[in-house]
Structures are given as structure tokens and as C-alpha cells.
Amino acid sequence: MAGAQDSSVGAPPPSDSSPEFVAKEVSGSHVITIKGYSLTKKLPTRDMITAATFNAAGHRWSILYYPNDTTYDDSQFISLYLMKIDPNHGHDTMAQFSFSLLSVDGVPVPQHSNTSGAP
């Protein structure tokens, strides 16, 4: 047809997919109990105990407990680390988390609590 213009000329080719980014916020809590704490303090510095894995936000996680920290200078302290068990599972995951020592009543003790930086 004379004079008709093709509207696709100069336009990018159609795409079968378009990128999509989805951010979801998920929250939860997990409590671990250290029975025999004084016995764990007998472990050498840098030795760790791995807590049972748990699920949160569609991923598997574990808590690493170092009863005498990870350095000799700080061996009077404990260290806790959150470890993602399935790091190659689908997509990047950012997490903000808190570790708190709980009182006998199950209430966090503020001077023994720490929150990770904002993701």
C-alpha cells in the first residue's frame, strides 16, 4: 500500500521477556539454647559449634557459635554468625538480623544485643 508506514521501523525488536526485580521483606525469629555453656568455654579459640539449620525467607540458615571468639585477643567473648546454607539458591539475598541474649523470661537484654547493619 503506497504511503503506508511500518510502525516497527526504528523500534527495538520485541522481547520475549522483560527484567523484573522483586523485593520481599520477610521476618521471623529463631531461638537457640546453649546447654552446658561452661563446657563449651573449654573449646580452643576459633573452634565453633554449628547450630541446627532452620528455614527463613525461603532459604536454609545456620548459626555458628564460637564460645571463645575467633581471635586470641577476644577469647573472653563469644561470637555468633549467621550463615546461609544454600548461597547459590536462585537469587541474591540480603538479610538484616539481630542476636540477643535473652533473660530467663525470654526478653532481650539490651546490653547483650547486636543488630547487623541495614541491607
Rank of each mutant, 00 (worst) to 15 (best):
A2V: 07
A2C: 09
A4R: 11
A4G: 08
Q5Y: 08
Q5P: 05
D6C: 09
D6E: 10
S8Y: 11
V9D: 10
S15A: 15
D16P: 09
S17Y: 12
S17A: 14
S18P: 01
S18W: 07
P19M: 07
F21A: 13
V22P: 06
A23H: 06
A23K: 10
K24G: 14
E25S: 12
E25L: 15
V26L: 11
G28E: 06
G28V: 02
S29Q: 15
S29G: 07
S29D: 14
S29C: 13
H30R: 07
I32Q: 09
I32V: 15
T33E: 15
T33H: 11
I34C: 01
K35H: 09
K35Q: 15
G36W: 02
G36Q: 04
Y37K: 14
S38K: 10
S38D: 15
L39K: 12
T40L: 05
K41E: 03
K42P: 04
L43R: 00
L43Y: 08
P44Y: 10
T45C: 04
T45V: 13
T45Y: 00
D47P: 04
D47M: 13
D47Q: 12
I49H: 04
I49E: 06
T50K: 15
A51T: 07
A52I: 08
F54H: 01
A56M: 12
A57L: 05
G58Q: 02
G58F: 06
G58V: 03
R60P: 04
W61C: 07
W61Y: 13
L64R: 06
P67N: 00
D69G: 00
T71N: 05
T71K: 07
Y72K: 14
D73A: 12
D74L: 13
Q76V: 12
F77W: 09
I78H: 00
S79I: 01
L80D: 02
Y81T: 13
L82T: 02
M83L: 13
K84M: 09
K84P: 00
I85H: 11
I85T: 08
I85A: 08
D86A: 09
D86H: 08
D86Y: 05
N88E: 13
H89Y: 15
H89T: 12
G90K: 09
H91G: 06
H91Q: 10
D92P: 09
M94R: 06
A95S: 11
A95F: 04
A95R: 03
Q96L: 09
F97C: 02
F97W: 08
F97R: 00
F97D: 00
S98C: 09
S98P: 02
S100L: 09
L102R: 01
L102P: 01
L102D: 01
S103G: 10
V104N: 10
D105F: 06
G106R: 03
G106H: 07
V107F: 05
V107M: 04
P108R: 06
P108C: 04
P108M: 08
V109H: 03
P110W: 05
Q111D: 13
Q111F: 05
S113V: 01
S113K: 04
T115K: 05
S116K: 01
S116D: 06
A118W: 12
A118M: 10
P119M: 01
